[in-house]
Design a protein around this nucleic acid. Structure first.
Lengths: 213, 213
DNA sequence: GACGACATACCAACCAGTCGGTATGTCGTC
DNA sequence: GACGACATACCGACTGGTTGGTATGTCGTC
């Protein structure tokens, strides 16, 4: 694999996207902003990308790769019990609510809000990113469901997507209120929900009381 | 009170905002789009609003008024039990997921995503709208909490804001997937969470099993 | 020279906002 | 009621700065 990159301009441009799009969204993002952030000029930008939209699609894919790697190396994966892994994922989500609001919020969740009706390529790239991540979370949920709530009426996929809805919504509230506290509260509610769903109390013990949420 | 409006241009412009902003967001919304939708020209627009930003702030306030009235007249308010009213609100939320995606999603949730870092006036207007609505929901939650979960560790305000996070996040997923089904699923999860929180099973009976989620 | 990776200069379309103008409404005076 | 002065509502042409994109130039490598 050719990873010996002599020129890293493309990476710089995509890295710039992570910052600029989360600050301003897609429409307000200017190619000049990206170039300034990357320390390049438009010539370099248009050498690598056909246009602004093409760049945004590539940025969504880049975001997906970066965050995919980040989550794949998170320590909760080492837990043997699948439910512990799910709850570990939620705790991890809460733990990474750090820095300024643009730093902890989601590039694809931001972009899909504005581009959903007017730019199908961007929307689809964002959907792929969100759905791909949810599918990863769904794996542990499915295992936990099999062990602890085999007869529950909800599906692992549905719950996984719900976690993403909560997290994306929490980011909106964090943006409105300019800080992570409100988002952390919502993630606490999500964790409590999952504990209740699996009949696990705060001591970590999973109780059996015959309820089927 | 002088409600005999001879000219309704301002209303038309604000009504146009409800459509255009939900389709394209703030930055991509052009003054010309609004004028076209309202059947007026820029002269008329700039007569009523100082500029694009001023208009967006007014649109957020208008959205807040309109939806405030809409929710105030919803039938779940007639239920005597506060917990029934909370669950009725959730059911109502699910029931109004109709029409095209821009038609059932939120103007202020959309706008705050892009404007949060770059436009404080718009952000604050959006925050006021979201928070004001959550405060209305929190009233019934507080009553229900007092009756059914007085010792719970979460606050009514926190749960109310969580409902908004879920709903906003559900809209993001609906935009990504271009339909209401995914949002309805997430709202089902929210309802289940609230039922679990208040120890209410699906038959409508609130059980007492000494748990304090 | 060919090519890739950029930089710089330039372009044309775009778009928020301006401004002179017309149309309509209001009010006081006769 | 007629009239003039003034205010309000709106129109449409226009402006000028901006922005995505194109054309051309430069440089290093082979």
């Amino acid at each position: 694999m050719n990873t010996d990159i002599k020129y890293d301009s493309r990476q710089k441009l995509l890295g710039a996207a992570l910052k600029v799009i989360r600050e301003k969204g897609y429409a307000a993002m200017r190619v000049d902003d990206i170039c300034a952030e990357a320390g390049l000029t438009k010539g370099g930008f248009f050498h690598h990308f056909k246009g602004k939209e093409d760049f945004a699609v590539a940025a969504a894919n880049y975001w997906s790769e970066m965050t995919g790697g980040f989550f794949a190396s998170a320590p909760y994966h080492l837990l043997p019990d699948p439910l512990d892994r799910v709850l570990g994922y939620i705790d991890f989500r809460k733990a990474i609510l750090r820095g300024s609001v643009p730093e902890f919020t989601c590039l694809v969740g931001t972009m899909v809000q504005e581009a959903h009706a007017t730019n199908p390529a961007i929307r689809d790239a964002c959907d792929a990113s969100i759905s791909g991540h949810a599918a990863e979370v769904a794996k542990d949920i499915a295992e936990a469901k099999k062990l602890y709530a085999p007869d529950a009426r909800w599906t692992a996929e549905s719950l996984a997507l719900h976690t993403q809805a909560v997290i994306q919504g929490a980011f909106i509230l964090a943006k409105a209120k300019q800080g992570p506290e409100i988002a952390a509260d919502s993630i606490d509610h999500l964790k409590r929900y999952i504990e209740l769903l699996f009949n696990r109390d705060s001591t970590g013990r999973t109780r059996d009381d015959h309820r089927n949420p």
